[in-house]
Every structure is written in structure tokens, then in C-alpha cells.
């Protein structure tokens, strides 16, 4: 029962309180790049969530069954990045064969996910905090949901911004960063939700 509550806390914390994008600054590149339209943002979010949960599972197995067992934690960085890169390739092959329609909507985003720092960050954070297997699964799911949430909200705001009269020197990246700052302020309101 106690662990059930703990798992819920990890999930909510990763999704809103310590949102990966707005509190840890992970995945800023897709956040700024792919957040122009709501439906692409949603697809990107789903693809990332999917890869995040898989990464959480596999990096946990590698870390606990191989690296820690044989006292090799200094290989963590290299192993994780290779794992993520090959995982994304496998997922891409699998999706292309099994579900062409899903592939069409996710296809172009999958290779981009390799360089998404949120994925590597997820693996590193869950190793650092010594989560159990189930805990890191939910940590991955929460992080993915939080990423999707931030991306979709941002895309919604940017669609409206198209019609706004933005000063010329703030057009593009600066206004996006300012909007992200206000979003981060709003998300700070969730901080009271969980008292550590």
C-alpha cells in the first residue's frame, strides 16, 4: 500500500510538479522546434512517451543487472546513449512493419527522439535516485505525460500567437522563451501539491 502511494507520487511529481521541460529543462529542442501545431505536438508527445517508458525499463535492467553488478558505473553514459539510439531504431523498424498508419504519424519524429535530452535525462535521473523497476516505469510514464502536456499547451499558445502583434525583435525564439517562462511560473503553482 505504501509503495502504491509512492508510485503515484513519483508519477505526479514527474508529470506536473517537476515537469521535465519546465522545471528540469530537458527536451527543450523539440519543445521549441515541434511546438507550432497542436496535432504534431500531440503525436511527438506520444512517440516520446512510448520511447521513455521503454528506455526506463531497459536502462533499469542494464544498470542493475550488468553495470552495478560488475562495478562498471563509469560506463553508464556510453551504454545509455547506445541503448537509446538502438532502441529508437528498433522501435522504428517494428512500428513500420506492424502498423503503417502509426508509422506515418510518428515516423518522422522517431529519429529526432534520439537527440532528445529528456530520454537520456530520464535514464540518468532514475539511476541517480535508485528507483525500483516499477518505480522507474512510472517515472518514465509520468515524464512522458508531462512532456506531452507542456508541448501541447505550448503549441496551443503558439497557434494563437500567430495572430498577435509581436515586436519584431522578439519574433521567433525570444517570444517562445518568454511564453515558456510564464508557463513555468504557472506550473510552479503545482509545487504545493507534493511536500517532499
Amino acid at each position: 500500500m505504501d509503495s502504491m502511494i509512492q508510485i503515484m507520487l513519483i508519477f505526479i511529481s514527474a508529470a506536473v510538479v517537476n515537469n521535465f521541460v519546465l522545471a528540469y529543462f530537458l527536451g527543450i529542442c523539440p519543445f521549441l522546434g515541434v511546438s507550432k501545431k497542436t496535432d504534431t505536438a500531440l503525436n511527438m508527445g506520444f512517440a516520446t512517451t512510448f520511447v521513455m517508458v521503454l528506455t526506463a525499463a531497459i536502462s533499469w535492467l542494464i544498470n542493475n543487472l550488468i553495470l552495478l553488478k560488475y562495478n562498471l558505473p563509469f560506463l553508464q553514459n556510453v551504454t545509455y546513449i547506445i541503448t537509446i539510439a538502438s532502441l529508437v531504431q528498433l522501435v522504428e523498424l517494428f512500428v513500420r512493419k506492424s502498423s503503417p498508419s502509426l508509422y506515418r504519424s510518428l515516423g518522422i519524429f522517431l529519429p529526432l527522439i534520439v537527440t532528445n535530452c529528456a530520454i537520456l535525462g530520464l535514464a540518468l535521473f532514475s539511476a541517480l535516485r535508485e528507483y525500483t523497476f516499477v518505480q522507474s516505469l512510472f517515472f518514465g510514464l509520468g515524464a512522458g505525460v508531462g512532456f506531452t502536456l507542456a508541448l501541447v499547451i505550448m503549441a496551443g499558445i503558439r497557434e494563437e500567437l500567430e495572430f498577435a502583434d509581436v515586436p519584431e525583435s522578439l519574433k521567433g525564439a525570444p517570444i517562445t522563451l518568454l511564453v515558456a517562462g510564464m508557463l513555468a511560473l504557472a506550473f510552479m503553482g503545482f509545487a504545493g501539491l507534493i511536500s517532499a
Binding site: A23, S169, L177, L178, A180, G181, A184, M188
Partner: peptide, 25 residues
């Protein structure tokens, strides 16, 4: 305090790029 929190990072980098763009333009 907000400047050392995440929100401050977005706001100050956004304004910094904005100011640089202003002078470049």
C-alpha cells in the same frame, strides 16, 4: 527569487536574445 527558479531562466534568456535582436535589427 524567481530569477534563480526555472521561470527566471526562460524569461532572462528570452529577453537577452530579444535585446540582441533589437540592436542587430
Amino acid at each position: 527569487v524567481v530569477m534563480v527558479l526555472p521561470a527566471g531562466a526562460f524569461l532572462s534568456l528570452g529577453l537577452m536574445i530579444g535585446v540582441i535582436n533589437y540592436f542587430t535589427l
